[in-house]
Amino acid sequence: MPDTRPDATAPSGSPLLALEGVTVRFGGIMALSEVGLDVGPGRVLGVIGPNGAGKTTLFNVACGFQRPDEGTITWKGERLDRLRPHDLAGLGIARTLQGLGLFERMTVLDNVTVGADRHGRAGFWSGLLALPRSAREEAALRERAMAALEELGIAHTAPRYPASLPYAVRKKVALARALVAEPELVLLDEPASGLSGEEMDELAGLVRGLTSRMAVMLVEHHMDLVMTVCDDIAVLDFGRLIARGSPDVVREDPAVVAAYLGDDVGQEA
């Protein structure tokens, strides 16, 4: 895999999304414990850690699906405490799910067009009466969706239903649905799971390509991929942030090696 990372020590600018002292408890379990993280424009932040470390919970907090018991979340300096999940897209944050979460009874094109929904304005009445305004907007949204499918090289699947497609293609559909929103930050939860090595290389190139348009937060178990595409890596273990830094720093961090990386790198790299 070619190393396409820019200088990892480049300044990150003012952060887009920042978490401070975030704590989430599920009964006795500390899913997250005073976690502080931030990601700036054009940066790729990797979040790694063993199963159950709290990675998905972290994403859920960032998306308003999970209220933190303590701590604050800010987006471009503004607090997001009262955020409901559906407000997120409007702010410019998109996310793919650890499961695919595709709309199984809608075509691929419709799936991706839903992702473009935040660029639409047409309300119920203009749709009911099929006003020209609504028709024009529909055409524009479809065009966006087609462009997103083309960018990922799966435009030919537009009229198909997700269930009829290979798993790797379905993952691309889910990705297209997130990217078509043209977010400023995209959260990818295990985008490489279930992909072949070749497909993973393609994904790495794609993620690096996104940095000209958006910031990326990436949860991933495949160390190869994480080390290749991330500018910054945060390591979670039992809900605690045990390390944070560039791939090289994290790789050498004794706490990380002890807690997690040691055996896993041996397996996967």
Binding site: F65, H86, A94, L97, G101, L102, F103, D117, A178, A181
Partner: peptide, 8 residues
């Protein structure tokens, strides 16, 4: 969940 993430 996916619908909410799309802003619905």
């Amino acid at each position: 969940v996916a619908a909410q993430l799309a802003g619905i």
